[in-house]
Design a binder for these strands. Structure first.
Lengths: 171, 171
DNA sequence: CGTAAATAGTTTATATATGGACTATCGACA
DNA sequence: TGTCGATAGTCCATATATAAACTATTTACG
């Protein structure tokens, strides 16, 4: 029975999936979305001291990897899996906080975003602590369970990326 | 190597986790958050014909289960894992669309929310189609893999719920 | 009984996110 | 070379989400 696989009855997920007949697929999708609901705010909590959000942290992480060459707005959006209009606002706020900066390119349509010195300093301080915090959040799972989750998520994501591209092509 | 467990190098997740040293825990957390980034908009796409969003659909699902007794605002928020201030706006929009309605209770602080007839009709039409859509999205996984994912997510969520309660109690 | 603490919901300010319309620029090719 | 379509980014309207401050009740207990 699907409900048994999901754990005890006190898992509030069953409240939601009750309404969909609690079949395996609905249960899986809701399970993933619901885990995100718990995980995402808990990840952000540790960043609050630094006055940045989870979305900002992820953007800064990518910008740090990109080094002084920076990343084009579009590339940033692609890697964060968000729309370009979202990137505009996100970078606006990072710029306002002095953590990142825009710069023009030879292609005058394009803009690159780079970490500022302040941004680099913040990330060098925040990211080890953040990594430690993520380890705490997932401490209840064994290394094997983590690897299994990573593998299955990767498999699912590969498929979802395909479906997403199909939709985009059709539109 | 952790990167191998996550799949090929073309998985853009590696871009992000590069910045954190790609240890197992960071990879797992980002994996879950990133899967959500793909899954959530794909779930919503099928609801767009009905002029409702994913959040609204989930709320309506819970309200349908609750029947004519309805759900208190707070209970709705708890089951959706969102804050009470979010529920206010969500129910405002459902009410404006004529899909749900507020009603007073004997406890004059509390408000219950109920589906309207229009809301019930919409859900009865939309939810079988939605369930079929969710099945399509997860078709690449075997039943065993789905059960494994559901079980591990449930285990992780149980722990995260504990951590969340601790934080709340401390504040 | 009467007040202090807890509870239920709203309001406000802000961040995240989308889709669609718009502007500017680049590239292809007739 | 001129123009037409694709590309890069911004702007607008709207939905989702939070935290913090606020109002109105209810409950606990002294």
């Amino acid at each position: 029975m699907a409900a048994a696989a999901a754990g005890k009855r006190d898992d509030e997920l069953t409240f939601v999936t009750d309404g969909l007949g609690a079949d395996l697929d609905a249960l899986l999708v809701f399970s993933i979305l619901r885990t995100h609901s718990y995980l995402s705010p808990l990840c952000e909590a540790a960043l609050r001291d630094r006055r940045i959000t989870g979305a900002q942290f992820n953007a800064l992480l990518l910008l740090r990897s990109a080094g002084k060459a920076g990343l084009k707005m579009g590339a940033l959006g692609e890697r964060l899996v968000v729309t370009k209009s979202n990137v505009t606002g996100l970078v606006d706020r990072l710029e306002r906080q002095g953590l990142a900066e825009r710069a023009g390119t030879s292609d005058r349509r394009a803009t690159v975003v780079r970490l500022t010195k302040a941004g680099r300093v913040l990330m060098d301080r925040a990211s080890p602590r953040h990594a430690a915090h993520l380890a705490e959040l997932t401490a209840c799972l064994s290394a094997g369970e983590k690897r299994t989750l990573i593998r299955l998520h990767s498999k699912l994501r590969r498929e979802l990326r395909q479906l997403r591209r199909q939709k985009k092509g059709a539109a």
